[in-house]
C-alpha cells in the first residue's frame, strides 16, 4: 500500500469518468464532496447505497458515484426510487437531482413521495435554472431574474422548497448553500440516517448561465453572496424562508419528524386487518 494520500471524495467516485462535465465554478461538485463525507459519516456501506437521478446537470451525479446508480428520465427519479426503495428495505436510496427536474416536471412525484413518507433522501441542488438546456426559467428562478426564456425577467411566483417539502410531510428538511460545506455535510449525514422521507435543498451557483445572464459574477462571487447574506435559523418556520432575487437566505435544519413510513403504515394496517393472513413484503430479499 502506498502512503500517498487520497482525496476522501474518491472513495465514492467513478474515477475513470473524471473530469466530469460540470463547468468551472458550478456548485454541484461541491455538494458531492459533502455527500461523500456524509455517506462515510453515516457509515452506509456502498453496496447498500443506491443513487437515482433525473435529467439535467445535477442529474449527472448518479453517473459519477461508484454505487449502483440510475440515471432515469426527466423528473422521474423519485418514482423509480420509490420502487427501488420499497423493494430493497435494507438499502438507502438517495435521489440526487436539480430544481427543474425535481420541482417542475417532477413536482408531482416530489410531493407524493413526501406525503407517503417513502424511505429516501432527496438532495435538490437548486441553481435557479435549467443548466443543461441553456439556462431557462424554473419554478425556483426568483422574480425579476433573467433566464433564456424570461429575457425580460421572471414574472412568476416561485416555490419555497423547504416549505413545500414540509407541507407534504417530509421527516427532515434542511437548506444550505454550497458555501456551508460543513453544515451541509452534517445535514446530509442526518438525512441519510432519517427513517422516511428527507429533503435537503442545496443552493448552488450556475456561473455559466444564471450568474452570467444576471450579471452576478462567477462562482466565487456567488459563494461570497451566500456567505454574506445567509443567516442560520435552525427550526425556522418554513413559511418564512422563501427566496427572492439576491435576497437574504435563511439556512438551517427546519423540520424533524418521526412519522410512520409508507412501509410501516402498510404493515401496521395489514396486520390489524389481516392478522396472521398478512405476508409482509420483503422486496428482493
Amino acid at each position: 500500500m502506498s502512503d500517498t494520500p487520497v482525496n476522501p471524495v474518491n472513495d465514492l467516485l467513478r474515477l475513470e469518468r473524471m473530469p466530469h462535465i460540470w463547468c468551472g465554478g458550478c456548485g454541484i461538485g461541491t455538494s458531492v464532496n459533502c455527500f461523500a463525507r456524509a455517506v462515510a459519516k453515516a457509515e452506509i456501506d456502498h453496496e447498500h447505497l443506491h443513487v437515482v437521478s433525473g435529467i439535467g446537470c445535477t442529474g449527472r451525479v448518479a453517473g459519477y458515484v461508484n454505487v449502483d446508480s440510475f440515471h432515469t428520465t426527466h423528473g422521474r427519479a423519485i418514482p423509480f426510487a420509490t420502487g427501488l426503495s420499497l423493494s430493497r428495505p435494507d438499502s438507502k436510496v438517495v435521489v440526487y437531482s436539480g430544481d427543474g427536474d425535481l420541482t417542475a416536471i417532477g413536482g408531482n412525484h416530489l410531493i407524493h413521495a413526501a406525503r407517503r413518507n417513502i424511505d429516501m433522501t432527496v438532495i435538490c441542488v437548486n441553481n435557479f435554472t435549467y443548466g443543461m438546456t441553456g439556462g431557462q426559467v424554473t419554478p425556483t428562478t426568483p422574480y425579476s431574474a433573467k433566464a433564456s426564456t424570461t429575457p425580460y425577467g421572471n414574472y412568476e411566483h416561485t416555490f419555497n422548497l423547504p416549505n413545500l417539502a414540509d407541507a407534504c410531510g417530509a421527516q427532515f428538511v434542511a437548506r444550505w448553500t454550497v458555501y456551508h460545506v460543513r453544515q451541509l455535510t452534517r445535514s446530509m449525514t442526518k438525512a441519510l440516517k432519517t427513517k422516511g422521507f428527507s429533503f435537503i435543498e442545496v443552493i448552488a451557483p450556475c456561473p455559466t448561465l444564471y450568474q452570467r445572464r444576471n450579471k452576478l459574477g462567477d462562482g466565487v462571487m456567488a459563494l461570497q453572496y451566500y456567505k454574506d447574506q445567509s443567516t442560520i435559523q435552525n427550526g425556522a418556520d418554513t413559511a418564512d424562508v422563501g427566496l427572492s432575487f439576491q435576497s437574504d437566505i435563511v439556512v438551517g435544519e427546519f423540520v424533524e419528524r418521526d412519522n410512520l413510513t409508507f412501509m410501516e403504515g402498510y404493515e401496521k394496517r395489514m396486520k390489524e386487518i389481516l392478522g396472521d393472513g398478512f405476508v409482509p413484503y420483503k422486496g428482493a430479499k
Partner: peptide, 16 residues
C-alpha cells in the same frame, strides 16, 4: 483542514 477539498467542485484538491 481540507476546506479546499470540501469546496473544490472538481475533486481536484484536498488537504491532509
Amino acid at each position: 483542514c481540507d476546506m479546499c477539498g470540501l469546496y473544490c467542485p472538481d475533486f481536484a484538491i484536498f488537504g491532509v
